[in-house]
């Protein structure tokens, strides 16, 4: 799919939490259709805040958001709840950072994934079939006994894969993955990344891949952006950013990566 033409997402954002200094300060980012973009930055730099902001999920009581979020020419800021809902999970999906606490503890897995399917489907009855393939793709069982489990009965890795499965159910245009691989062993991690990649190649899903593991980002993304002090300080092809960091901050980030192997 072409990466030229109109951008998929165009951001210009400032976010403040009440009682704190600005987390994002006129943060600018453009994501092209079908782009795999890695966003790296220190813990606390505002990556998760950005992810929530794009989906309009920031707690309006505590956070103030200014600027614009243009998704396929449509301004998202200021949308009504109903319009937001038609976007969330269908056109822009989110894999939340803390996998275990992101699943509702009182609901069985089957109920949660069915609900995620039915939120945007015209064929609510077909949820079993539709979800089974996705669950299989992330390496999770699809049988009844699994669907009857409660989240607390899953390992952290399984929970993260389950979350990812729910996020990709509707083949969104943009997938925001907030550190989806942090709790996974290397093999599962690569399986999940493969899922994302095939989603990207088969359905043209753009992925905003948030991580502080710059190595993973580099191996996976077309482009890497570095977030520091509330703004993008550097952005470019992984090789360029990693081998020839221009900004002082990027240099420190790169040098902090152990066993950096360009090959």
């Amino acid at each position: 799919m072409s990466r030229s033409g109109e951008p998929l997402l165009e951001l210009r954002l400032s976010v403040d939490y009440r009682g704190g200094s600005g987390v994002l300060q006129t943060f600018e980012l453009t994501i092209a259709e079908g782009e795999l973009i890695g966003l790296a930055g220190q813990s606390g730099s505002g990556k998760s805040t950005l992810a929530l902001a794009i989906l309009g999920l920031l707690d309006e009581r505590r956070a103030r958001i200014e600027g614009s979020i243009r998704f396929r020419q449509q301004e998202l800021l200021g949308l009504g709840e109903r319009q937001w809902r038609s976007i969330r999970g269908r056109r822009i999906a989110l894999v939340f950072q803390s996998a275990v606490s992101s699943l509702t503890p009182t609901m069985r897995l089957g109920d949660q994934i069915r609900e995620a399917w039915q939120a945007h489907s015209n064929h609510p009855a077909e949820w079993r079939m539709e979800t089974a393939s996705t669950l299989g793709a992330v390496g999770l069982p699809t049988d009844d006994s699994f669907l009857r489990l409660f989240p607390r009965e899953l390992s952290v890795g399984m929970a993260q894969r389950f979350l990812a499965a729910m996020a990709v159910l509707h083949k969104p245009d943009l997938l925001i993955a907030d550190e989806p691989t942090s709790a996974l062993d290397v093999i599962t991690q690569s399986e999940l990344l493969k899922l994302f990649q095939s989603l990207n190649s088969q359905h043209g899903t753009a992925i905003l891949f948030i991580t502080h593991d710059i190595a993973v980002a580099a191996s996976f993304c077309h482009r890497i952006a570095i977030l520091h002090d509330g703004a993008i300080v550097e952005s470019g092809a992984p090789a360029t950013v990693l081998t020839n960091p221009r900004e002082e901050y990027t240099k420190r980030l790169v040098s902090a990566v152990p066993q950096w192997n360009l090959g």
């Binding site: 929530l52 989906l55 999920l57 707690d59 505590r62 709840e81 809902r85 038609s86 976007i87 969330r88 999970g89 269908r90 999906a93 989110l94 939340f96 950072q97 803390s98 606490s101 992101s102 699943l103 509702t104 503890p105 609900e115 995620a116 939120a119 945007h120 979350l163 729910m166 996020a167």
Partner: peptide
């Protein structure tokens, strides 16, 4: 209301 699983559920497009 501000817990991760609630935000996550809303992120899947569920109604309030």
């Amino acid at each position: 209301l501000v817990s991760d699983f609630v935000i996550s559920a809303r992120g899947r497009g569920l109604s309030k």
